[in-house]
Amino acid sequence: MSFSIFHNLVINTSPEDVFHAVSQPKHLDNWWTLKSSGKPEQGTEYNLNFTDQYNWFCKVSKVAPNKSFHLKMTISDEDWNPTTFGFDLEEETGSTLVKFSHINWREANHEFKHSSFCWAILLKGLKDYLEKGTVIPFEDRS
């Protein structure tokens, strides 16, 4: 048995803008990571750095420009290692429906529940980044 996190939200911008914000390091660093690297191409490696203690790696497991972007964790903590998270995008009139998933958690433990809460906050940060241009300094992100 595995456990999954799902969040849907509407962002008032194009799927292209959302895709860039979730797949390009220069944008990831504005709403999620301290510093990141990688290219949105199938099988390529991403480095997601939050601190020296949380310097994680993953690989692109699914990519369709302006439609879908998923990363499979390869080096992270014990709870995150078996997981894959991603964004599926559907164009709506003048906006994008973002279907976020973070799947294959081994157990619905504290880390799983905390991560679900944190993703909700981070996705609100993504929405504010794209709709309002808001960049919260890394040290102020929850």
Score class of each variant (00 low, 15 high):
F100N: 01
E41Y: 13
E90V: 11
P137M: 14
F69C: 03
L122K: 10
K132Q: 10
V18N: 07
W32Q: 00
W31N: 00
F57S: 12
G43C: 06
I11P: 04
G133E: 10
L130S: 05
W56K: 05
D29K: 01
H102V: 07
Q42A: 09
I136T: 03
A64E: 15
E45V: 12
K62D: 11
S23L: 03
A21C: 09
N66P: 12
L34M: 13
S95F: 09
K72A: 13
E131L: 04
T83V: 03
N81D: 00
E107P: 01
F85D: 06
E91C: 08
K127M: 02
S142C: 09
L48H: 04
K35D: 13
K113W: 08
K26R: 12
V135L: 06
G125Y: 06
M1G: 05
L130A: 05
V135F: 06
V10K: 15
W105N: 01
K99W: 01
K132M: 08
K72M: 12
L28C: 08
A108C: 11
R106I: 10
N81H: 03
S36W: 07
S101T: 13
R106N: 15
T84Y: 03
I103D: 05
H110F: 14
P25Y: 10
Q24K: 14
V60C: 04
M73N: 05
K99D: 02
T134W: 03
V60L: 06
G125H: 07
F112M: 07
N81W: 07
E16P: 07
N30A: 10
G43H: 09
K127V: 00
G43V: 11
S37C: 04
N66I: 14
S23P: 02
W119Y: 11
I121F: 07
A120C: 06
F87K: 06
T74N: 01
T84V: 11
T93Y: 09
